[in-house]
């Protein structure tokens, strides 16, 4: 449904997106994860025809999106990360406006708008001015707007960002609904756990490059072939780090106050060798544990952001 090949986007000398490849089959929900400034929004805008690519190819439903820009617009529903609303319109007038933009026939409009308002749970607000809606409601309204022409693929740029926990839950419920309706969705977030449960596949992007992508379980496996150990010491922090660095199977050492985390690529006997050498050199070890990583740790590990903690 969506195919991106060797996509590059350059601003001056820096690449916002570089050599990005991505393929989303029909009906999949692809989670696009990366820290701020990673290039998620840039990629999405290029797909939607709001930015030109420096080089590369994008196909939406088999249509060359970079060259036949007009054709793909009816296939795509886009929700930007930052957007405004026409504050002097009422909720149903707002949707009515976009419906006429997409040339939806007058006789179908009422039903489409009513259904969408039902879907995003705004039916009761239909006569309110858009300006008076809460942030979460505006977000849902914008989602309804992106669905008005019944697009095949949805591009949602951080739809849950800036929402309070309750609004997040509501947004998630709607997205699950859309998934059940069989929409193909590309959704981004800078918080991995937010997407992990609902996505079929995930791609982690950092500095414009796709670091890792695949199904959720594939990523877990790939990342968890390496373990994560956590050591708590009562002092001698720097000395501990020096010792850890002597082991070839330990890398990516990060430190906090009296706390050390490190990648660990060895077996159980390697683990005990580390512990015994720490103890023989009189490091006051308080705890020594292998971490049960959750998705958040994966993310921290894969993206460079984790090292500078």
């Amino acid at each position: 449904m969506l195919e991106i090949k060797n996509l590059h986007k350059r601003y001056g000398k820096t690449y916002a997106v570089s050599d990005l490849n991505l393929s989303i089959p029909e009906g999949e929900i692809f989670g696009f994860v990366g820290p701020n400034g990673a290039g998620k929004s840039t990629t999405m805008k290029i797909i939607c025809g709001l930015l030109t690519a420096t080089s590369g190819e994008v196909y939406v439903d088999g249509v060359d999106a970079l060259r036949q820009n007009k054709k793909i617009k009816e296939k795509i529903g886009y929700m930007p990360d930052f957007f405004g609303v026409y504050d002097d319109l009422k909720v149903d007038e707002y949707l009515d406006f976009y419906a006429s933009v997409y040339k939806i026939k007058e006789e179908n409009k009422r039903k489409i708008i009513a259904d969408l308002l039902e879907l995003v749970d705004l039916s009761r607000k239909k006569d309110s001015y858009v300006d008076n809606l809460s942030r979460g409601m505006k977000q849902r309204l914008c989602l309804a707007r992106s669905l008005i022409h019944n697009p095949k693929i949805l591009i949602l740029d951080e739809p849950a960002s800036g929402l309070d926990p309750r609004a997040r839950v509501e947004m998630k419920a709607i997205l699950r609904n859309l998934k059940d309706m069989g929409k193909t969705i590309l959704i981004s977030s800078h918080i991995l756990s937010e997407l992990a449960e609902m996505c079929t596949s995930i791609g982690i992007i950092d500095n414009g490059k796709m670091v890792i992508s695949g199904t959720v379980s594939e990523i877990m496996q790939q990342v968890y072939s390496k373990k994560l150990i956590q050591i708590k010491v009562n002092g001698k922090l720097e000395e501990t780090v020096m010792i850890l660095k002597e082991f070839p199977f330990i890398d990516k050492i990060t430190t906090g106050e009296n706390l050390i985390q490190a990648g660990f690529d060895g077996g159980d006997d390697d683990m005990s060798r580390v512990l015994s050498s720490l103890v023989t050199r009189a490091i006051p070890v308080a705890t020594f544990a292998q971490l049960e990583g959750n998705l958040e740790d994966v993310f921290m590990k894969v993206t460079k952001g984790g090292e500078e903690k």
């Binding site: 709001l50 886009y78 930007p80 957007f83 997409y102 914008c142």
Partner: peptide, 13 residues
């Protein structure tokens, strides 16, 4: 300025 332009431009208008 109101960040509504992209919403118009991504339609087939």
């Amino acid at each position: 300025e109101r960040q509504t332009l992209d919403l118009l431009l991504c339609t087939n208008l």
